[in-house]
């Protein structure tokens, strides 16, 4: 091929890359619109919704997003994420109640505890795959559950109650739901932006490659185990962020937070919202938490309705709510 022909060829090739980079810009624009909508929601929500309910929503949205980072982007189904969520809730509660730490430090401590637990469990769990991986994570989570049940510091069946919200930085009073709401909003936004960055980083690209074809990634020279472990730790730490915040919202860390049903619930939220989408877990968490809240007077019927919603979801739109919307709009959300 002559030099000139080669140059022309190259120009056409580069020219062809135009439309997709437009598509990428379009996608980013869509994401910005969704971010703006979420921002608008959290600002006006306290006007017409009970703030504690919105805070609960934000905590579970964060938890589901953290879980989705592993399942949707790393292809790792953990069935033990309650350990990080609940373990962090106890850690934040202990720091605030026993040590009298301010909320920002109590939550930071909770994140640290969850990350360390994630590193330890992840190190042992990532050696196996698929159902075995899920079972090992479940087994670890059950260990944490029984520890929470038996240990003297966790309050056993009663849980850790009346966890105080001390003054932020030792200065700003956080005992009312009004001011604490804004702290939760800031935590949520930081968590979401951090996750958005992880997904759209070179590390995130590697993660998608592992989800698509793990042996091929190994043959390209990627040490996939290390990527999986780091994903596990990031996911656990962010679950801890959600759990620690939740403990301060409700002044309570209880066995419900570490029970295996919590691990199941987060799977449910992620699948209903759309696994592997960015905003799906937020939508899924909203659906589940809203249902639990507003149908609470129906008692155990809630679980049946939840199950029915899940079955309908799996049978009719497997991509989840956001997955389906993204398909309509021909974009990735």
């Amino acid at each position: 091929m002559s030099k000139q022909a080669e140059t022309t060829n190259r120009t056409t090739a580069i020219h062809q890359s135009r439309p997709p980079s437009d598509a990428r810009a379009r996608m980013t624009r869509h994401h910005m619109i969704v971010f703006a909508l979420i921002g608008l929601f959290v600002v006006i929500a306290p006007q017409f919704l009970y703030p504690v309910f919105v805070m609960k929503l934000l905590c579970f949205a964060l938890f589901a997003m953290a879980f989705n980072l592993m399942l949707g982007f790393g292809g790792l189904l953990s069935f033990g994420h309650a350990a990080f969520f609940g373990g962090a809730a106890y850690a934040a509660g202990y720091a605030a109640k026993v040590w009298g730490w301010p909320p920002e430090l109590a939550i930071a401590f909770a994140v640290l505890v969850a990350a360390v637990m994630g590193a330890a469990f992840g190190f042992l769990a990532i050696k196996s795959r698929g159902i075995y991986f899920a079972m090992i994570t479940l087994a670890f989570a059950q260990m944490v559950y029984f520890y929470a049940l038996q240990a003297p510091i966790t309050g056993g069946e009663d849980g850790m109650q009346s966890i105080p919200r001390n003054a932020l930085f030792g200065l700003v009073d956080m005992s009312g739901d009004g001011p604490f709401y804004w702290m939760v909003v800031v935590i949520f936004i930081i968590g979401v932006l951090f996750m958005y960055r992880v997904i759209h980083s070179p590390f995130g690209e590697v993660l998608k490659g592992i989800r698509e074809n793990e042996p091929r990634m190994i043959s390209l020279g990627y040490q996939v185990q290390r990527y999986k472990l780091l994903t596990f730790v990031i996911s656990a730490a962010l679950s801890g962020l959600a759990g620690g915040t939740k403990a301060l919202v409700f002044h309570l860390a209880s066995l419900v937070d570490v029970h295996w049903t919590m691990s199941g619930e987060v799977v449910l939220m992620t699948l209903i919202g759309g696994m592997g989408t960015i905003f799906g877990p937020i939508v899924g968490a909203t659906v589940i938490v809203t249902m639990q809240n507003y149908l609470a007077n129906l008692g155990s019927l809630v679980l049946i309705i939840q199950g029915a919603v899940f079955i309908v979801c799996v049978l009719t739109f497997r991509e989840g709510i956001v997955g389906v919307i993204a398909k309509w709009l021909k974009t990735r959300l």
Partner: peptide
């Protein structure tokens, strides 16, 4: 994805934007 491994090596940079690729 293959070039990324060769050029960026074994980095775990989850804090950078993938625009650098």
């Amino acid at each position: 994805l293959a070039l990324q491994r060769r050029v960026h090596g074994r980095s775990f940079d989850f804090w950078r934007s993938s625009k650098c690729l």
